[in-house]
Write a protein that binds this DNA or RNA. Structure first.
Lengths: 244, 244
DNA sequence: AGCCGACAGGTTGTTTTACCAAGTTTGAGA
DNA sequence: TCTCAAACTTGGTAAAACAACCTGTCGGCT
């Protein structure tokens, strides 16, 4: 008889144990990790299990291995401590209830130049747009626009001015059977229009960070475009990536 | 006797073969990949070898696996086709010979506020700065600044106004024994100063994209800061990332 | 004495064989 | 029609062997 609650596989347990020891200082950075044979003896597991655990640690950046010498401790990967604040991504998964804001525009318009290119539709054709003004701490902070091809906006709850209870990702995935895969992001800066400056409550003489996120499926077909407008005096974008 | 040129391991060869078949349309997206046993028979390898190859393909996004059903073809990951144009990264590896540009400032100055924070030095302390104006197609396009703590700038060739023959990364790694690991990037927008507008040959009424890249080692210790200033009318940043 | 090569013993990398567990589908039989 | 067992799939563990690589030591040679 097996226990009903699922236990994590052995190699995953080993990963956790070694991570804890590195963080606790038992294996200081720069030193050699115990060899495979030593780990096999200490934990009473087979070599493939040890190797699987060490492979995970290497791919996550905790250690680096050198054939013939051993595995060197690098320490907790600093990458992991930098939270990924990709703008635009949050608006695809978070239900609109979680952020306060008003829908300021909903309907079909002729696609702006850049949006048309990102959605891969013919120039001057109509697309669906849904624009929201995000409010934080009782102050307007971001202007978020969602563009969709017309064939993806039909039959959804997006055409109403009500906030969505579901995340946008689940909504489209359930209604239309499309699967979001990745985002191609373009970042530019420009001066705000008079309308934008008024809506965002910002001076007209400071620039705007404009983030365009083209949402695609695994084959690269564009599904949607998210535009996020951030007043540059109150927001900046942060990201982290390894050096290749 | 063995051949002297090293052959790639079997599982890597299998990865390449399957990638080519997916791209050629032999395994169309959405369909099931041949099962492990079928691949074992066709290629006359053992199961762990097949599993190792399929694991690589899954981690790279070519396929996705589902226990009990099989492995589904997703197609060439569109992520890979988007070239990663991380600003700042190029200036760390490319020799300065490859880009035309003049060194416009070299020396020790009091650290600007943001740079001091990123380098983790006490406020108002001195840091080394090396500023270059990049020229493309006979026009100034980018203003790149490199900040270093004083203890890292001593004994290097950076203090001269001559362009470096080596990449900055190799230069510091050889001279100082530090290892670049990752970059934490901040992106903001602001109006150019009169000096910057003049040097970049841009109008004073369009904004500037400012990218700050804090270079760190594996433990998170800051090693350098790269600032890239881009006129927003001529440049934008592009990036791609998967949806989690 | 000093230098250099061979060799032994350690390490990780790759491949094979074998078995069991867990999830899904299918079809035979009640 | 419904149930359930069999036959598929992928996921995980164990044991063994060989190859490639590094680092010492122990020679012999200059």
């Amino acid at each position: 008889m097996m226990s009903l609650e699922s236990v994590p596989p052995k190699y995953a347990q080993l990963v956790q144990t070694l991570q804890r020891r590195i963080e606790a200082g038992d294996y200081p950075p720069g030193t050699l990790l115990p060899s495979e044979n030593q780990l096999i003896q200490e934990f009473s597991v087979s070599r493939p299990t040890v190797v699987a655990a060490l492979r995970v640690l290497r791919e996550q950046g905790w250690i680096e291995s050198q054939q013939g010498k051993g595995r060197f401790v690098r320490g907790r990967p600093a990458m992991a401590s930098v939270e990924q604040k990709r703008p635009g991504q949050a608006y695809l998964t978070t239900p609109e209830n979680d952020t306060t804001g008003d829908v300021v525009e909903v309907g079909a318009v002729t696609a702006p130049n850049r949006v048309g290119v990102l959605l891969d539709v013919s120039p001057k054709s109509k697309v669906f747009v849904r624009r929201r003004l995000i409010v934080r701490d009782a102050e307007p902070t971001e202007l978020v626009s969602l563009w969709l091809p017309l064939d993806l906006s039909g039959g959804t709850d997006l055409t109403s001015g009500e906030p969505l209870r579901q995340g946008l990702r689940e909504h489209l995935q359930a209604r239309k059977g499309v699967r979001f895969d990745h985002i191609v992001e373009q970042i530019t800066a420009r001066m705000p229009s008079a309308d934008e400056a008024r809506q965002l409550g910002m001076p007209k003489n400071i620039p705007l960070l404009a983030v365009f996120g083209a949402v695609r499926d695994a084959s690269g077909r564009p599904l949607a475009v998210v535009e996020v407008l951030l007043p540059a005096n109150r927001h900046e974008l942060e990201d982290a990536y390894p050096i290749t």
